[in-house]
């Protein structure tokens, strides 16, 4: 039947019944590419900020700290020593904190130095680490599932997070600020009204942006460099997160600048599964050593000295609740 119709159509065509149609050339709009998982205007669920007293106070370290190879039997450290390597959740996108060096393919930075110091103290070898890259929103699930022993990834200590994971003492004090293009008129949080502001999913920065009274449009992505991509492509007006992360972005693009007064304090801690309190204490002991023996300062000068203005600060003073 279909073929009969074809034959009929052919006959009609031959007899000149076909109509003439013209082709209209449409106007083709450009479609900007987006980083994977990017979403515009999707504010994080407005969690009522948990209140707690003194979130940055951690657990007091043991004195003396056990030496490598002499971890107390049955402790979390003993289990890690048994395995022979420390599994660390890190970032490979934050310049000079935790980033993959394209020249070597190695992940390095200030956070990585801190993680290696823990491996050195626990296993006697700074290279006995397995680095697992995590996005901001994968950090807590990875700890809860036991995929990693510890997360050292520009992670801010908050009361909300303290209910889900344990934190070490503060090892870096960051402040949330704003990154814009060199020619932007945005000069602070108040000027962000209606502007698109980028931050990663699951970060405290995204929540802080969404909560700003000026009501910016939050744009969320997986990794911090995705924010810089979108800023360069003109898809967002600003990036807002911790000064140290922004400094890493500014170092990759000289046509950007960091502006405005700090929006919030962002004390970084190393996160550890909630039940492994012995490991929190051990890590605090490591941090005390690292901060007193000059390792912290050397690492700061190597990675962050060139990014951040001013003299090398003193390491944060640890606070303990018991």
């Amino acid at each position: 039947m279909k073929r009969a119709l074809v034959v009929l159509a052919a006959a009609l065509t031959l007899s000149g019944c076909a109509s003439v149609s013209t082709t209209v050339i449409p106007t083709v709009p450009a479609q900007e590419p987006l980083p994977g998982n990017a979403s515009v205007g999707a504010a994080p669920p407005a969690a009522a900020a948990e209140q707690c007293t003194d979130p940055v106070a951690s657990l007091r370290p043991p004195n003396p700290l056990p030496a490598p190879g002499q971890m107390p039997a049955g402790s979390t450290m003993a289990k890690i020593a048994q395995r022979g390597r420390l599994i660390v959740g890190v970032d490979q996108n934050t310049f000079h904190m935790g980033f993959r060096d394209p020249a070597t393919g190695q992940i390095q930075g200030f956070d990585i130095d801190m993680a290696r110091a823990v491996a050195q103290a626990l296993l006697g070898d700074p290279n006995a680490v397995q680095l697992k890259v995590l996005t901001s929103d994968q950090r807590i699930p990875a700890l809860q599932n036991g995929d990693v022993d510890i997360v050292v990834r520009t992670m801010t200590i908050t009361c909300d997070r303290l209910k889900q994971v344990g934190f070490s003492a503060v090892y870096y004090d960051a402040k949330q600020r704003i990154l814009v293009k060199q020619n932007s008129t945005i000069d602070g949080p108040a000027a962000l009204g209606g502007k698109k502001v980028c931050a990663t999913k699951g970060s405290t920065s995204l929540a802080a942006v969404a909560a700003l009274p000026a009501k910016p449009v939050p744009v969320s992505v997986s990794d911090w460099t995705d924010c810089l991509v979108m800023l360069q492509q003109g898809q967002v007006d600003a990036v807002s997160t911790d000064d140290v992360i922004l400094a890493g972005m500014a170092a990759q693009d000289q046509y950007t600048k960091v502006v405005g007064a700090p929006l919030a304090d962002e004390p970084y801690g190393m996160a550890i599964p909630l039940q492994n309190q012995d490991f929190v204490r051990f890590v605090n002991g490591v941090l005390q050593n690292v901060e007193s023996n000059g390792t912290w300062t050397a690492s700061y000068q190597r990675w962050l000295g060139s990014l951040l203005p001013g003299a090398t600060p003193a390491p944060p003073t640890p606070q303990y609740r018991d």
């Binding site: 590419p33 980083p35 994977g36 310049f95 394209p102 810089l228 991509v229």
Partner: peptide, 27 residues
């Protein structure tokens, strides 16, 4: 275009290159 941007950033030793490559791959 995205792949070439990624390559240019990569050649300057910037981790930004990997982000452009991810965007290209997503596209």
């Amino acid at each position: 275009g995205l792949v070439e941007t990624a390559r240019a950033d990569n050649q300057q030793g910037l981790p930004l290159g990997a982000a452009y490559q991810r965007e290209a791959s997503t596209l």
